[in-house]
């Protein structure tokens, strides 16, 4: 699997340089803005606005200290973890059952459900905010975590269901049939047999749900009020007042947000590739 598909075992020096050169350039492009974020967070609070652009400027952890001790950042972080966590767990469960049903059962409306899922992603969020706000208000879910989770599910579930449907398609139906012969219900077959086999696909779905909820701004800003309920995106906006933005704090907070997400990423990135691959080359 690690062996290359197309490349020759030995490649010429020139080709090697070109290959690595391209990858290094791409890596630099990917990395520079993030590095710049880290460097900025290490500068004194007001040093970021300077026409004299420097990499280092009196490095200090003061921004981090301020954000962690003087603001509600820890609370926002916790709220975000909670909301993103709930979105992930619930979203993946719902998406998996939907994806499985669409993958396995022939029933009228299959195509329209697939379409429906896709179409929901085509309506601009800006137009949805006000009616959604009123709906949540009527359900008493404004400024409540379940309300925000519900809103995120509308974004995460369609894609995940779609993704998982594709994944379930690759799991042979003989497995389900064997389960049925052993007396399992269709749901039991799904739960006991198919789901465990779909772990890589579930990992991708979980990851996607998490990232969606972790980085969402518009719903969180509209639906949540007050430090106790703010998630990161609306919370961080407190660093931007009417006449200035505290970039020192913003960048420090951004680094602290990105690191956990990045760590999760690094941990699962292998699964990401294989999850999206549906494990076709396993031997």
């Amino acid at each position: 699997m690690a062996r290359s598909h197309t490349g020759e075992a030995r490649r010429g020096l020139g080709a090697s340089i070109a290959l690595h050169g391209t990858l290094v350039a791409a890596s630099a492009f990917a990395l520079i803005p993030l590095l710049w974020l880290v460097l900025t967070s290490l500068k004194p609070k007001d040093a970021w606005i300077s026409s004299d652009v420097r990499f280092f400027d009196d490095p200090t952890l003061a921004n981090y200290e301020y954000v962690l001790t003087e603001t509600s950042f820890p609370r926002w972080l916790l709220n975000s973890v909670l909301v993103a966590g709930l979105t992930t767990v619930i979203g993946v469960l719902i998406a998996a059952s939907t994806g499985y049903a669409i993958s396995r059962f022939r029933f009228t409306g299959l195509r329209s459900i697939l379409w429906l899922l896709l179409v929901t992603q085509m309506f601009p969020v800006a137009v949805l905010i006000v009616p959604l706000y009123n709906l949540l208000g009527r359900m008493g879910l404004l400024n409540q975590y379940p309300g925000l989770v519900l809103a995120y599910l509308t974004v995460a579930v369609p894609f995940c269901a779609w993704l998982l449907k594709g994944y379930f398609d690759t799991i042979p139906t003989e497995i389900d049939q064997a389960g049925q012969i052993d007396g399992l219900t269709p749901f039991g077959a799904f739960w006991r047999l198919v789901l465990p086999l779909a772990k890589p696909g579930l990992a991708v779905a979980a990851f996607y749900s998490f990232v969606t909820a972790w980085g969402e701004v518009a719903y969180a800003t509209a639906f949540m009020t007050g430090d106790e309920h703010y998630t990161l995106a609306p919370g961080l906006q407190q660093f931007v007042s009417q006449s200035r933005a505290e970039w020192g704090w913003l960048t420090a907070a951004a680094v602290m947000i990105t690191i956990p997400a990045g760590a999760v990423f690094l941990a699962v990135q292998r699964h990401l590739v294989s999850g999206l691959t549906a494990g076709a080359t396993k031997s």
Binding site: I129, V130, Y133, N134, G137, R138, G140, L142, N143, T221, A222, F223, T225, G226, D227, P234, Q237, Q238, V240, S241, Q242
Partner: peptide
């Protein structure tokens, strides 16, 4: 509740028309 200035107008209008929050 500290509501960032840039968001406040929209947030208030959204809340006020719906009567909740």
């Amino acid at each position: 509740v500290n509501v960032p200035f840039g968001e406040a107008q929209n947030k208030f209008k959204t809340a006020a028309q719906g009567g909740s929050g």
